[in-house]
Amino acid sequence: MRRLLPHPLLSLTLAFLWLLLVNQLSAGHLVLGALLGWLIPFATSRFWPEQIRIRHPFTLLRYLVVFVIDIVRGSFHVARLILLGPARLRPMFVTVPLALKTDLAISLLANTISLTPGTVSARLSADKQTLIVHTLDTDDADALVAEIKQRYEAPLKRIFEEGHE
């Protein structure tokens, strides 16, 4: 089974993307999409060394809802700050110590931080222990770090890393 279908999630995603790309749902494209979803993981297997396992699908679902809401909140937040003008901004670099270990979870966290209110991830340290984040308007770095850890890092850890190693 493993050898026949090395990355089931990737295959499913690829088939779905193919249907979106051709923008129609016919039997022929379903077959072609399934075929591509089956073949492409073999051709690119060198890029996917580790198996992705999602441990808590409902946590993932809740995380996605929070994520979408925070994208909208983040855009309104940054729009308000831009309209109010540069004079009252309080930018700051904040260092977030990471509890996450896997590359996938860390990159998801960094991307989430960049899309959510007031923060853009700027640099991951070489040992993957800390993430430097630039914030647009804050005076309380500790509260910001605590919010990032509780709101985004904890669910990601639960979804991708519970029982890891």
Binding site: V72, S75, G118
Partner: peptide
């Protein structure tokens, strides 16, 4: 939102703050 993103790019004073507008507002 597209307009505000570019406004931030043109208006803010250092590179790191300018980065926020296009990343969030323009994308949304």
């Amino acid at each position: 939102f597209t307009f505000i993103g570019s406004l931030g790019l043109a208006r803010l004073r250092d590179f790191y703050t300018r980065l926020h507008g296009p990343t969030k507002a323009t994308t949304l």
